[in-house]
């Protein structure tokens, strides 16, 4: 399903970024790394913080793997990728803890858990270990932006419905549908948004959707 790996002319930076945001959106289409997508998206700000962290880790590890892939023996590549990701996650984790302590107190555990996110290691395996530096950079950027986009959309929806505000600015009096700020509401928001993505896909392409509905999720 990975369109960018088909033989042919090298994809451009714009294609790669759009691919990450829409065609292969990590959350809605590939259904990878769903844990943070439900966990931290009670507000836009939380989603934004984690999205930025993932974006940075994805770009930095993609670039690192591209640079050192010549030295990695194929049999030990997965442990080496994990260590590269862990190093960058530690760095980003400490940076965020130092600069945004209030937000970090809420999402700190999930920032640390970026190291176990399937999306990052799968992009390293599928893309960065086989492509040159520049496309890898843009692929990482696209995937990170797609993730950021998904988190902000879910966060906005839940904050608007659950707390009646958007990015901390109150829009509606009281709490319209508190349900969406609760854990269960997170699952329902994702179900609704995923179904929406599938519906739009069916409408635009006219064929049955392959992404979120299929069995491609998992590791």
């Amino acid at each position: 399903m990975s369109t960018v790996l088909l033989p042919g002319p090298a994809p451009t930076a714009r294609q790669l970024i759009l691919n990450g945001i829409f065609a292969e959106n990590p959350v809605f289409r590939l259904a990878l790394s769903l844990c943070p997508a439900v966990a931290v998206t009670t507000t836009v700000a939380n989603g934004l913080l984690l999205g930025v962290a993932v974006l940075l880790v994805q770009v930095l590890s993609s670039v690192t793997v591209t640079l050192v892939r010549g030295f990695i023996h194929p049999r030990v590549r997965i442990p080496v990728y994990t260590i590269i990701i862990a190093v960058w996650v530690s760095a980003i984790d400490m940076t965020l803890a130092a600069f945004t302590p209030a937000l970090y107190a809420q999402v700190g555990l999930y920032v640390k858990l970026i190291v176990a996110f399937a999306i990052i290691i799968s992009r390293l395996e599928v893309f960065a270990s086989r492509q040159p530096l520049v496309p890898s950079f843009f692929d990482g950027l696209g995937m990170g932006l797609g993730f950021l986009f998904a988190l902000v959309v879910i966060g906005a929806m839940r904050e608007l419905l659950g707390a009646g505000s958007l990015a901390g600015i109150p829009l509606a009096p009281g709490k319209p549908l508190l349900f969406f700020a609760l854990p269960a509401g997170g699952f329902f928001s994702i179900a609704l948004l995923m179904a929406l993505f599938n519906w739009v896909e069916r409408r635009t392409t006219g064929k049955s959707s392959a992404g979120g509905a299929g069995g491609t999720h998992g590791v």
């Binding site: 854990p183 269960a184 979120g212 509905a213």
Partner: peptide
């Protein structure tokens, strides 16, 4: 319903379970 087939309905189910676990 077609758009809900596969993962979306699984998420809705998980939501119901989460509600029960509350």
């Amino acid at each position: 319903p077609a758009p809900f087939q596969g993962l979306p309905i699984a998420f809705a189910l998980a939501g119901l379970f989460a509600l029960a676990f509350m």
